[in-house]
């Protein structure tokens, strides 16, 4: 009899986990974090209703509709290029924030900071590599995304304006990459940017003024480094995010991605 009672009162690990789970999912904190119908609130089992809830009750609903055209999920059509461009942008933001902790945009410190990032910061070199290669990859993927959209004729009505925003985003990507190019403040950066900005000075009427404002002087100098740093980490990402938001919103408003050929 005593044995039976003991057996009854002993809880297995599975029971404890289930109990903990239930008390957590019933708590007010949990319920205020996850919306009614969220899969974190009532568990997930595969059903059409729950598949809808995954998108509907999460922040993903801002990006994706509940259902998409069957052909839109074919990897061979989009090659994921637009999505990967956006993902690389996120990856570059994360690695970039990491790099900002160890970098001062002054001509006296910039190169030294990169040098010590390589030698005395844990994963410093690795993160810098990821930032640089990710940036080149993003230029490439944005460019290929543009080519893919063109060859599919996806810029035609009703998506004309989204194409225009896409071209602006391509330009912004190049500007982001180009402003970042100067920041290591080594010979490669300095002279590549010198060549690039010399070309800018030949714009008619406003060329030399724009160049003066961007460089903070008639030649590249310490002021240029600070200006390009601010452009690279704040202004261009800010503008890019705004145009990305419009770009994604228009994709949905114009009826999802373009149809099959």
């Amino acid at each position: 009899m005593v044995q039976m009672l003991e057996q009854k009162s002993r809880l297995t690990v599975k029971d404890r986990v289930t109990k903990l789970n239930e008390s957590m999912q019933g708590s007010q904190a949990w319920n205020s974090i996850f919306r009614p119908g969220s899969i974190f609130r009532k568990g997930y089992s595969d059903s059409p209703r729950n598949r809808s809830y995954v998108v509907m009750n999460s922040v993903l609903y801002h990006l994706h509709p509940v259902k998409v055209k069957r052909h839109a999920v074919k990897v061979s059509y989009t090659l994921c290029l637009g999505g990967l461009s956006f993902f690389l942008f996120i990856l570059l933001t994360i690695t970039g924030i990491f790099l900002m902790f160890f970098y001062r945009p002054t001509s006296a410190n910039a190169w030294q900071d990169i040098q010590s990032l390589h030698t005395s910061v844990t994963f410093g070199l690795m993160v810098r590599n990821m930032h640089r290669w990710g940036a080149h990859l993003m230029v490439l993927s944005v460019f290929l995304h543009m080519a893919r959209v063109f060859y599919h004729g996806a810029y035609k009505a009703p998506r004309e304006f989204n194409w225009v925003i896409g071209v602006i985003l391509l330009t912004l990507t190049l500007l982001l990459s180009f402003t970042g190019y100067l920041l290591p403040w080594d010979q490669l950066a300095l002279w590549a940017v010198t060549v690039g900005t010399n070309m800018m000075g030949y714009s008619p009427v406003i060329g030399s003024q724009v160049r003066f404002v961007l460089l903070g002087g008639v030649e590249i100098g310490p002021e240029t480094l600070l200006r390009w740093y601010v452009l690279h980490v704040l202004l261009f990402p800010f503008v890019t995010v705004i145009f990305l938001a419009i770009h994604f919103w228009r994709v949905r408003k114009d009826g999802g991605i373009s149809g099959p050929l």
Binding site: W111, H118, H131, H136, F143, Q187, L188, L190, A192, G196
Partner: peptide, 24 residues
């Protein structure tokens, strides 16, 4: 593959050749 880091910027020494970033 490591990202390149050349000598610190030197205004008095122009590398030959000086090239823009690849997309330019």
């Amino acid at each position: 593959v490591n990202a390149p880091l050349l000598q610190a910027a030197n205004f008095n020494q122009t590398p030959n050749p000086s090239k823009a970033p690849w997309y330019f």
